Amino acid sequence: MKNELDSRFILSVFEKIKTHGKEDQEGHILEGVRAYTDFDGYTLFLQDASVLLSFGFHNQYHFQYEKAEQVEQFEKKLQHIHANY
């Protein structure tokens, strides 16, 4: 599994979720992916039921997950959002 995402891609997906997703008290959600920030806005989060992606300082990102397959499915969701919104 290739585990390298372009920072522009991450930021684009985050913005598309904010623009087209449904807003709730925790952020915005679109196609099962939630987008939100920490209290100061320096760290962005993209999350589904199985994976949490945090993106922040110096364009570094980190995945939290239990199985590699979950990350693969998560990345497919992000690609779908990027291509269709």
Rank of each mutant, 00 (worst) to 15 (best):
Y61C: 02
Q60P: 08
I10Q: 01
L30K: 05
V71S: 03
D48I: 10
E15A: 14
I17F: 02
Y36C: 11
E23H: 09
L78N: 01
A35V: 12
R8G: 07
Y85L: 04
I17V: 14
H20E: 04
F14G: 11
E26P: 13
Q60D: 13
A68C: 08
F74G: 04
V33T: 03
F63G: 05
H58C: 06
T37W: 06
F55R: 07
A49K: 14
F74D: 02
N59W: 07
Y65M: 08
I17H: 05
Y85C: 10
I10M: 02
A83Y: 09
L53Y: 04
A35Y: 10
H80L: 01
G56A: 02
D38K: 11
F63S: 05
N84A: 11
H28L: 01
F14A: 11
E31N: 15
F74Q: 05
F39L: 11
N59G: 08
Q64L: 08
R8I: 06
Q70S: 15
F74V: 03
L46I: 08
E23I: 00
R34P: 10
D24M: 07
S54F: 04
Q25D: 03
L11Y: 09
I29W: 08
R8H: 01
F55L: 10
F14N: 12
Q47W: 02
F57S: 15
L52H: 12
E69F: 14
E72C: 10
E31A: 12
K2R: 14
